[in-house]
Amino acid sequence: MNQWFGFFKKEWFESVKTYKLLLVVVIFSILGILNPFTAKITPVLLEQFMPAGTIMDLPEPTALDSWLQFYKNVPQMGLVVFILLFSTMMSKELEKGTLVILLTKGLRRSTVITTKYMMAICYWTLAILLSFTITYAYTAFYWDQSTLQHLFFAASCLYIFGLLLIAVTLWGNTYFATPYGGILVTFIGMIGLFITAIFPQSKSWNPLELATAPPQLLTGDLLPADVFVSYLLTLGLTLVFVVLTVVHFKRKLV
C-alpha cells in the first residue's frame, strides 16, 4: 500500500508539472461559465440579428436551458478535452522507457495501472465538480431551479460515463503503446455505441444513454430507474476494462 501511495504521489507531481492541473481547472471553469451564459444570451442575440420589425415570441430562458447547455458542452467538449489530456498516460512512459527502472526495482505492474487510472478519476472528479458547481451557482443566481428533478443523479450519470471512456482510453493506450492508440480506440468505441443506439431496443442498456438521458431526467420524462441497467452495465464495463489493462500489462514487454 505504501508503494501505491508513493507512486500515486509521483503521478500527481508529474501531472502538475505537465500543466494538466492548470488545463483541467481553466478549461472546465470556462465550460462551467459558458453554460448559463449561452442560455441567457441566445434569445438576446437572436433578437439583435433579426431584421427590424420582425415580431418574435421568444420564451425567456429558464434554468432548464442552462442545464441543457451543460449536458451538451460537457459530454462533447469536456470529454474530448479530457480524453486528449489523458490519452498519453501510458504511452509516454512506454515510449521513453521510464518505467523500466521502477519495475526492475520491484514496483508491481498492477500498481502502475491502478494509480494511473485513479489519478485520471481524481482529475475527472475535479473537472465535473468544478463545472457543475459553477453552472449550479450561476443558474441558482439567475433562475429558479426548483422545477428540475434529479439534478445530482443526472450529473452522476455523466460522471460514470466519463469513467468508462477513461478506462477504454487507458486500455487502448496500454495495448497499442502509442499516443494515438488510446484516442483511436475510444473513438471507435464511441462510434460503436452510437451505432447500437440506432436500434431502439438498446435504449434500456446502452451506456451512451447515460450521456444523452440527463436532459430527460431533469424534466422528469425519465426516471432514475429507467437508466439503472445502463448505469450498472457502465460500471461493470469500466471494471472489465481496468482489469483487462492490468492483465495485458502484466504480460507486456516494457
Binding site: K20, I27, T88
Partner: peptide, 10 residues
Amino acid sequence: FIGPLVYFVF
C-alpha cells in the same frame, strides 16, 4: 483553449 491544450499535451 483547445490551442493551449494541444500545445501542452502534444
